[in-house]
Design a binder for these strands. Sequence first.
DNA 1: GTGTTTGTTACGAC
DNA 2: GGTCGTAACAAACA
Length: 275
Amino acid sequence: MPELPEVEGYRQYLEATSLHQPIDDLDVEDTKLLTTDPMLLLEALRGASFTGTRRVGKNLFVYTDRPGVIVRMHFGMTGDLAYYHQSLDRPRHARIVFRFRGGYHLGFICPRKFERIGIVHDIETFLREKKIGKDALELTAADLEIVLASRKTPIKSALLDQQVAAGVGNWIADELLFHARIHPLKPAHQLTTAEIEALQVAIQEVLLTAIAKEARYADFPASYLIHARAWDTSPYEDTQQHLNCPRCGTLINNIRVGGRATYFCPNCQRLGPND
DNA sequence: GTGTTTGTTACGAC
DNA sequence: GGTCGTAACAAACA
């Protein structure tokens, strides 16, 4: 699921494969995936080359050699990139394809059509209009204190708000709260200074680990909560061990917060002294 | 066939 | 205008 670490991986992948090759043509299987008019997109990109990248949260911006033409990609819940030679089969779900002059293609993989691609003229303007806050990796404890102070919503929900911490998604929010020992339902504005500082440390620790492991969840340290999630069973095929807290052994709870599946340890992450 | 999952946005209510 | 809860979107998978 493309959250910040995956998108960072896609950014590095695009940098390593797709720069400085003129775009001859663009295949668009479904215009619903575009945030820019198809004709304008084609006109803006035909003959242009990618020159560099920037990631903010889950957004990947790709600079071109044309002023004011920046491609913005959002990978939704299942998006991916695939660079391949035209002599090979087009990957499944490559619904938008950049055809480079040298014969290579960059496919924007969209299995569920929740992905989006389009042109932005200025990144800062785009971020302001879309209300996307600081990238999670850039956040200081002081930043967090300010953005959480006005929120009465559960901290889990606040962390998913891209205005609060751009790039944090559902499993990362749970992992952060587990590391910082904060109950997901605790109102955001009630976090103590110590909890906010622990959260900021957890953001660095969890995101940098996930990026280093190229977001392969099975490779994450055994101390991570992520192994309790139903879809990460790979190293534990014949045991239920992973359903327990890696710190204290308590059975991990599974509740819904803001309509999202939420995992936490009822022993390590307390709402109050009585629970 | 049914339920679940994911990120974002739209839509009211306050 | 900010905040907050909820539903909707598309498609795959079990």
